[in-house]
C-alpha cells in the first residue's frame, strides 16, 4: 500500500540460493541507508528444485506491512527455464525491471513495458571459479548493474562476508563478472 517502497521478487528453485541472494541484497541495502528492509520467503513448501520465490521490500523507513509483494518493481529470475513454468511477471509494475540469468540474447525477452537485463550467470559463475549451478552471487552482480540501487563495492563486501569460508573470492568475482556482462534491453 505504501508507494515509496521498492519491492523486489526473486524467483528460483529450492536449493538454488534465491533466499541467500535476496538476503545479501537486503544487507547491502541496509548498509547503504535503507532502514526498512524485509525479506519474506515462500512459506513452508521449500523443496529442492521446486519453484520458490522470496519478496524483498526496501524503504528509507521502517516497513510495517510484511505481506508478500503483489506489485514488484523488480523481478529477478535465477533460472530462465522458470519462465516456462511460472508467470514471473505477475503484478510487475508497468515501468518495472526483469533481471534474468539466461544464455539467450536480451532481445529474446519482451515483457510489456518493462526493461529487461540478461546475463549468462551460470556460465560466468563457472568462469569465476564457482561450481556449476551456483548462481546466487552472480545474479546479484546483474541486479546491481540493472537496478542501480546499491553500489557494487558494498555488494561485493557483503558477498564476501556472507560466503566466508565458502569461496568468498570466487563468489565476489562472479558478481563482478556478471555486473560487467549484463546486457540491458526491453521496453
Amino acid at each position: 500500500m505504501k508507494s515509496d517502497n521498492i519491492e523486489i521478487r526473486w524467483h528460483g528453485r529450492g536449493g538454488q540460493g534465491a533466499i541467500t541472494a535476496a538476503k545479501i541484497v537486503a544487507k547491502a541495502m541496509f548498509t547503504s541507508g535503507y532502514t526498512g528492509v524485509v525479506m519474506v520467503p515462500t512459506f513452508g513448501t521449500e523443496r529442492r528444485g521446486a519453484p520458490v520465490f522470496t519478496s524483498l521490500k526496501v524503504s528509507r523507513e521502517k516497513i510495517y506491512d510484511l505481506s508478500p509483494s503483489k506489485e514488484p518493481d523488480i523481478v529477478v529470475v535465477l533460472d530462465h527455464l522458470l519462465l516456462e513454468e511460472e508467470d514471473i511477471t505477475q503484478g510487475l509494475k508497468h515501468d518495472g525491471l526483469v533481471v534474468i540469468n539466461s544464455p539467450l540474447a536480451v532481445r529474446s525477452y519482451r515483457f510489456n513495458g518493462s526493461r529487461v537485463a540478461v546475463a549468462d550467470v551460470t556460465d560466468l559463475s563457472v568462469k569465476a571459479g564457482l561450481p556449476q549451478g551456483m548462481v546466487n552471487s552472480g545474479i546479484i552482480g546483474s541486479f546491481a548493474r540493472a537496478a542501480g540501487l546499491v553500489e557494487l563495492d558494498v555488494l561485493l563486501k557483503t558477498i564476501e562476508d556472507e560466503f566466508i569460508g565458502r569461496k568468498p573470492g570466487e563468489n565476489s568475482r562472479a558478481a563482478q563478472l556478471c555486473y560487467e556482462n549484463t546486457i540491458m534491453g526491453g521496453l
Binding site: K23, A26, F30, T35, V37, V38, M39, V40, P41, F43, G44, I63, L66
Partner: peptide
Amino acid sequence: GYILSHTHMP
C-alpha cells in the same frame, strides 16, 4: 509463525 519466524529484517 513464518510471518515473523521466517522473515528476515534488521
